[in-house]
Design a protein around this nucleic acid. Structure first.
Length: 477
RNA sequence: UCCUUCUUAGCUCAGUUGGUUAGAGCACCUGACUGUUAAUCAGGGGGUCCUUGGUUCAAGCCCAAGAGAAGGAGCCA
């Protein structure tokens, strides 16, 4: 009977004959027996397969190399070794796929993250990436479960968009025009009227505007799909292709929005704690090892599991932008001139400012709201003071902004004033119409899925929490 | 895009003031070992010193340009 290693560890049966199929992690030979560590990806654990040298074809043993794929048939027995309770005494081994030991790039040893990025087609066979991608799955599943339970509908915003008005950064163009000698118009520019869509089109930088259309009919919707930014960003927190979760809710004000976002983050983190205990314990060990290697002043106070449990248990701190500026102005950091960027009302908060608030001052997740309207997007609802908008950002220790959202401007005149100023009124006619026909107060936010995975796994680079990262100069695999 | 650092064996890295045949650990191969835990011990093979150009009697090392990578910043999720 075929079994997954996860099932075997959940319910070991020492009587029946079973078959396991998987990839060889390592092989150790001794005078009488051979030990093979086998992993099938179903869980972190390896199953130890024991072969008698006497009863096994020499040629088969040779081909059981690191990376090879094999099927082992045998029975579980109590292990004589200390590291495991049981192991498989194998009767027959089938080599399903050989791996030349001299050429196989993964060795039974620690590899650098940079090297593993270069062999992303094989890195899911390592302990660390197996753990990361199983947790990534859990978080994705938890996202759907959370919103479904909350009465949301999964809504699909288009991935190809003809409006470049989201204002969320540089976009990738989608075109079927020939790259060489494209058709030109009278102004000697590329004639997009001859392109596939009859106009210039791009990959979406946000599904928000279309999600709003859904919310103003279905009430509560969320999107969860790929998003694209053609920014030349080279950081540990940015990807050119990433997955974003964007809920949009009619009849939610900014406070309802914050409540939902906090509940959402806690739910998915708790889901991982409940369902990925083994993988998280492994990543926690890894995190502690790395943390110890750091300089004292850079060491984290909490390990990964402590941090996750802490975030789930704490109420997020909620302050206004104006209060945040006051805290920064009164801080020792400011008095000692440790900030590189000037602090004053009206500035966009810099990384160093956000980090001070989250990591030094409050030491927990912080929600900052009511930002100056000049530094925020056109669609955010203006406050009565005429200076600020009902925006909110959720900042997490270590990774910064994990959620950005707002109450949306539902007043037609005020919204049109902003779109007129940007010269996008014409192309967003459909967006503005929702404010003319039965407009409703509503809110929403965007959460970067990879940043969430980054936080939960405790990894240091966003390129290591997505199977095949797309970044400037890198689209391999 | 800007700043800093880096690129030497399959991997991780050392390589002194520019000097003769470029090293180590791990991995791999061979052998030894009565059940191992990243097994251990002994031996062996393995190099476009990122690329191009320059300085020099002589360049892995110095200079210039380029490519790529890592970290930080900006943009943001």
């Amino acid at each position: 009977m075929k079994k997954y290693i996860k099932e075997i560890f959940a319910q070991p049966s020492l009587t029946e004959e079973i078959i396991v199929e998987g990839w060889v992690r390592s092989k150790r030979e001794s005078a009488q027996v051979v030990f093979v560590m086998l992993n099938d990806g179903s869980c972190l654990k390896n199953l130890q397969i024991v072969l008698s040298l006497e009863n096994t074809d020499e040629n088969i043993i040779k081909r059981i190399a690191t990376g090879a794929c094999i099927a082992a048939k045998g029975t579980l027995v109590a292990s004589q070794g200390k590291e495991q309770a049981f192991e498989m005494q194998a009767n027959t081994i089938d080599i399903l796929g050989e791996a030349d030991a001299e050429k196989y790039p993964l060795q039974p040893k620690a590899h650098s993250m940079e090297y593993l990025r270069d062999i992303a087609h094989l890195r899911s066979r390592t302990q660390t990436f197996g753990a990361i991608f199983r947790i990534r799955h859990s978080l994705g599943f938890a996202v759907h479960q959370f919103f479904h339970q909350e009465g949301f509908f999964y809504w699909h915003s288009p991935i190809i968009t003809a409006s470049d008005a989201e204002g969320a950064g540089e976009m990738f163009r989608v075109s079927t025009l020939p790259a060489e000698n494209p058709p030109m118009n009278e102004e000697k520019k590329v004639n997009f009227k001859e392109d596939f869509f009859g106009r210039e089109a791009h990959l979406t930088v946000s599904g928000q505007l279309e999600a709003e259309l859904g919310a103003l009919g279905l009430g509560k919707v969320y999107t969860f799909g790929p998003t694209f930014r053609a920014e030349n960003s080279n950081t540990t927190r940015h990807l050119a292709e990433f997955w974003m979760i964007e809920p949009e809710m009619a009849f939610f004000d900014i406070k309802d929005n914050m409540d939902l976002a906090e509940k959402f983050l806690k739910y998915v983190i708790q889901f991982a704690l409940d369902n990925n205990a083994e993988d998280l314990a492994f990543l926690n060990e890894r995190f502690e090892k790395e943390n110890k290697a750091k300089k004292k002043e850079e060491q984290a106070e909490m390990n990964l599991l402590e941090k996750l449990n802490f975030v789930v248990a704490q109420e997020f701190e909620r302050i206004s932008y104006t209060e945040a500026i006051d805290i920064l102005l009164n801080s020792n950091y400011h008095k000692k001139k440790k900030f590189n960027f000037e602090v004053k009302w009206g500035i966009d908060l810099q990384s160093e400012h956000e980090r001070y608030l989250v990591e030094k001052h409050f030491k927990k997740p912080v929600i900052i709201s009511d930002y100056p309207k000049e530094i925020k997007a056109f669609y955010m609802k203006q406050n009565e003071d005429g200076k600020t908008v009902r925006a909110m950002d959720i900042l997490f220790p270590g990774i910064g902004e994990v959620v950005g959202g707002s109450q949306r401007e539902e007043n037609y005149e005020k919204l049109k004033e902003r779109t007129d100023a940007m010269g996008i009124t014409e192309q967003l006619w459909w967006y503005l119409e929702t404010r003319q026909f039965g407009t409703a107060y509503h809110s929403g936010f965007g959460a970067g899925f990879e940043r969430l995975v980054l936080f939960v796994t405790g990894m240091g680079n966003i390129r290591d929490v997505i199977p095949f990262p797309r970044t400037p100069k890198n689209a391999e695999f």
